[in-house]
């Protein structure tokens, strides 16, 4: 990054999107392929089952479907060592703070797969008072897998999609080599209902107008 000072000025908010081509970028572009090849074939998922989908995840890890064929057999119980969070099941409000804390503890690069209907959008339990209607309301999701629960074949398909996503990433644009650190997601609080700090202003406005 020695030639950083010579590059033309780019507005701060566009820096993640705009790449200025120079020699350093060329080298990094050539590195993309081996870099991604290494990462796509050693995705370590977090050993983290929430509900029914977790059982299908275990079945997929077992001998009949065997996702170690894709380099994913190393399931890590600790978020510090894992690359992939498979949100396998219904996310409840009581569990949400823990999930976000786990997500924040994962080192970059990290990916999230919303496995099944519940994690994608609430599924059959969407109307429930303790259910979060989709984990994507709180953390960014890379791949959604449909099904309730998705069959092991569907899960494998989703994981292959994730590998393709990794293939298309470029060292120039990935946020974890950006200039600023990736910000942690604020952990929600269990109040009268789940409250994320991002909503405080809105909550104040709404509760005032009601009262």
């Amino acid at each position: 990054m020695a030639d950083k000072d010579k590059s033309p000025e780019v507005p701060k908010e566009l820096r993640a999107q705009v790449a200025i081509s120079n020699f350093g970028d060329l080298i990094r572009g050539a590195l993309d392929k081996p870099y991604n090849w290494g990462r796509r074939n050693s995705v370590w998922p977090m050993m983290f089952g929430l509900a029914c989908c977790g059982i299908e995840m275990i079945s997929t890890a077992a001998s009949r479907y065997d996702f170690s064929r894709f380099g994913m057999e190393v399931m890590r119980p600790s978020p510090r060592q894992s690359d992939l969070m498979l949100v396998s099941g219904t996310v409840t409000k009581k569990m949400l703070p823990q999930i976000i804390r786990l997500y924040n503890q994962m080192p970059e690069p990290k990916y999230v797969v919303a496995m099944g209907a519940c994690a994608s959008g609430g599924g059959p339990f969407k109307e429930g008072y303790n259910v979060v209607a989709g984990i994507d309301k709180y953390i960014p999701v890379d791949v959604y897998i449909s099904g309730c629960p998705p069959t092991p074949q569907a899960l494998l398909h989703g994981l292959i999609k994730l590998q393709k996503l990794i293939d298309n990433q470029s060292l120039n644009r990935v946020p974890w080599y950006g200039e600023e650190p990736v910000e942690a997601i604020p952990v929600p609080v269990l109040g009268p209902d789940i409250m994320t700090p991002l909503d405080y202003k809105k909550i104040k406005k709404e509760t005032k107008s009601k009262g």
Partner: peptide, 15 residues
């Protein structure tokens, strides 16, 4: 109003 599965009582002044 929040676009999410949440609701708050009216007397919640300072979240």
């Amino acid at each position: 109003p929040y676009g999410k599965n949440v609701q708050y009582p009216d007397d919640l002044a300072q979240p």
